[in-house]
Nucleic acid binder design. Structure first.
Lengths: 209, 209
DNA sequence: GTCTATAGACTGATAGAC
DNA sequence: GTCTATCAGTCTATAGAC
């Protein structure tokens, strides 16, 4: 149905960039198409001209946001040839690099799932693989067998890694209020964690350094 | 200005309970007063009769939500007589107990701060104490001096404790989608963490069991 | 205190000129 | 492609009857 997409970009691209910013900050319900148009420096009517509706524009933002978060990760997490220790370093680094550029991303995605899980499921295809089949989980399981901590589900460790990496970004506004840090103070805190988190995680798995 | 509050409760209380549920699920912008009224089983006009406006009702919900999350915690965290090890156990337990009853709480609060930090600051009084003065931070600092890990800011460890405890609840809808767990599966996962998190945290501080 | 009816403001979307 | 003007629908809040 779509005509050949005019790749002059410019206006179309500006709208999308503005939508990213506003949606991630305010969520779907809290964002007004007028604000997105203003942020993009264009007229409200153009938003509908290019993207038909607020809903359709939102869907694109959600998909690309998730794409950023998951696609690289999914590739990395399923590499057979990369060692578990190396993966822990890389996953931490990957998330931190991404989230430093998009600090609002975690809360945006998690918030939209919470506010309407059904809508979310419809908008994104849920990968159909079982958690236990993921290569990293298998690797962690083997590692834990060797070091005698078989009684713990390795999924706990993955959640720990993700929690310690992502949560500070989700809590960033609150942390900044409590600590009175500016953006630089927060960034320095995160850079320290880039080094520390892999050490903590490997210690949980009893991987010797 | 308020007349002597009629502590028949009933209607007034029903509205507040409904507001808690709806606001926590959908956030401020995503919630409609009509939905809250319907959830409470009362007429829309009554909502304004008791609470004047959506904004004022929301403020109450935010304050009580934060109260639940922080007041008990603040008391515990500043007790001089409780040992660090004991506090770690208690903080974990306190959060898990609370969040099992209100799993949407973390995302609700963090999301509202993100969507409008200024409004949030106005609505709640921000405690004026420095982070470094908190008793638990001091205790952690001392412990880390003894065990020779002075180069790490103890605030990292506190953030780890909070991250590992709270994040799974913030990510609950996503975890349930990925793992295909029902509520029982998720609860069991959390109960395992109630035991595990203190062990991991104490290991980071090199507290011997 | 509780209801119905409606005012008044806002929002997403489109028609139509250029 | 881009704009102005405007419609139709929705939402909060209130007036007024009971």
């Amino acid at each position: 149905m779509e005509k050949g997409v005019n790749k002059d970009a410019s206006t179309e691209e500006k709208i999308k960039a503005a939508a990213f910013k506003i949606f991630q900050q305010k969520g779907f319900a809290g964002s007004r198409t007028r604000d997105i148009a203003e942020e993009a420096g264009i007229n409200l009517a153009l938003l509908n001209y290019y993207y038909r509706s607020k809903e359709k524009l939102f869907k694109i933002v959600i998909e690309e946001s998730l794409g950023q978060l998951f696609i690289q990760l999914q590739r990395l997490i399923n590499e057979e040839s990369t060692s578990l220790s190396e993966k822990i370093d890389k996953i931490t680094g990957l998330y931190i690099d991404l989230l430093k550029k998009n600090p609002n991303l975690p809360l945006f995605i998690l918030g939209e799932i919470q506010s309407d899980p059904e809508k979310f499921k419809k908008q994104v295809g849920i990968p159909d693989i079982s958690i236990q089949e993921i290569v990293t989980i298998r690797q962690a399981k083997e590692q834990m067998k060797i070091t005698g901590i078989e009684n713990i589900d390795p999924f706990h460790i993955i959640i720990n890694l993700i929690s310690m990496t992502i949560f500070p970004f989700a809590a960033r506004p609150m942390i900044k209020i409590l600590t009175k840090w500016d953006d630089n103070g927060f960034d320095q805190f995160i850079e320290e964690r880039r080094q520390l988190i892999p050490v903590w995680i490997k210690s949980m798995l009893k991987i010797e350094k």
